[in-house]
């Protein structure tokens, strides 16, 4: 569909003048329309509805409900789980990515780990919870971890399982971008391996690492399938509560609960993002 629109403008260069001066950007309209309808509009609905009451009138006081201790508890739970799994996933994933990158770029190991990462990063979900259940759950084949149902440790471990592959996927290009000359130049100037990482490799990778960690955080925040199938009947995180709110219209009355919680999540992402931008600005002065 985009093709049809683009060819039309392209066939007539702008110097053709008045005849049919369709500007080049019209070629992007199909994409923009799609994103508008299925991404921007729903997000807008969330923001607007969260500030209305169920009958459709504006009710800005809804915001104060976010301070409700019960609601706050879900957000703190979400934050704990996301922080734990994203930091652990980022550090471990970076180590694995380095090991993968330092091998043969066309080798079987790299191919295997990249393919596996592609699947496992997306395939967490329901399946993953089952897998860990039979491995270390109450009737685990390996052993029975008494902390399997503990929050955030048990579920954090399971989250890390899909965070590491995601880290490998997004961080590998950054490691591949480290030029061998930098390593050799620093060695030549007298740097030990540790000094190389401390002064050269580390600072060079820092912006990418930060960005990837943020991505992992957002990824954990939106993960719902795994914790839904975790089989612990207590709700700890926001998505669980949104799910409950969507399926049963109980809870805080007089407020669009699901919309309000969703708004809270958007705010949470915005805060983390702002933090990231500030850190990034320090870490990547040299990029500009």
């Amino acid at each position: 569909m985009a093709v049809a629109a683009t060819t039309k403008t392209g066939a007539r260069p702008s110097r053709a003048g008045r005849r049919l001066a369709v500007p080049a950007w019209t070629g992007t309209v199909p994409f923009l329309a799609y994103v508008g309808v299925f991404l921007l509009w729903p997000t807008g609905i969330v923001v607007v509805d969260s500030l209305k009451n169920p009958s459709g009138a504006w009710q800005l006081s809804n915001i104060t409900e976010l301070a409700n201790p019960l609601v706050r508890g879900y957000f703190i739970g979400s934050f704990k789980l996301c922080l734990l799994s994203s930091v652990a996933g980022a550090v471990l994933g970076a180590i694995l990515a380095y090991a993968v990158a330092s091998g043969n770029p066309d080798g079987i190991v790299r191919r295997l780990y990249l393919s596996a990462s592609g699947v496992l990063a997306q395939f967490g979900g329901v399946t993953l919870a089952f897998a860990f259940l039979v491995l270390i759950g109450p009737v685990g084949l390996l052993f029975h971890a008494s902390w399997y149902y503990d929050f955030p440790w048990g579920i954090g471990l399971i989250y890390t399982y899909f965070q590491i592959p995601l880290m490998v996927l997004v961080f590998l290009p950054a490691i591949d971008g480290l030029k061998i000359q930098w390593r050799e130049a620093s060695e030549n100037l007298g740097a030990s391996a540790w000094q190389y990482w401390r002064y050269v490799g580390g600072p060079l990778l820092a912006p990418a690492f930060l960005g990837a960690t943020l991505l992992l955080f957002a990824n954990a925040l939106s993960a719902f399938a795994t914790i839904a199938a975790w089989e612990n009947q207590i709700a700890y995180v926001v998505p669980q509560q949104i799910s409950t709110a969507l399926s049963s219209e109980v809870g805080l009355s007089n407020v669009n609960v699901a919309d309000l919680l969703a708004l809270g999540m958007i705010v949470m992402v915005a805060i983390v993002m702002t933090l990231y931008v500030l850190l990034q600005r320090r870490a990547a002065r040299w990029l500009r």
């Binding site: 030029k179 000359q181 930098w182 050799e184 130049a185 620093s186 030549n188 050269v200 600072p203 060079l204 002065r285 040299w286």
Partner: peptide, 11 residues
């Protein structure tokens, strides 16, 4: 040592 190119630390 001076390398062919791109050996300066970009940061």
């Amino acid at each position: 040592m001076v390398f062919q190119a791109y050996s300066l630390f970009p940061h």
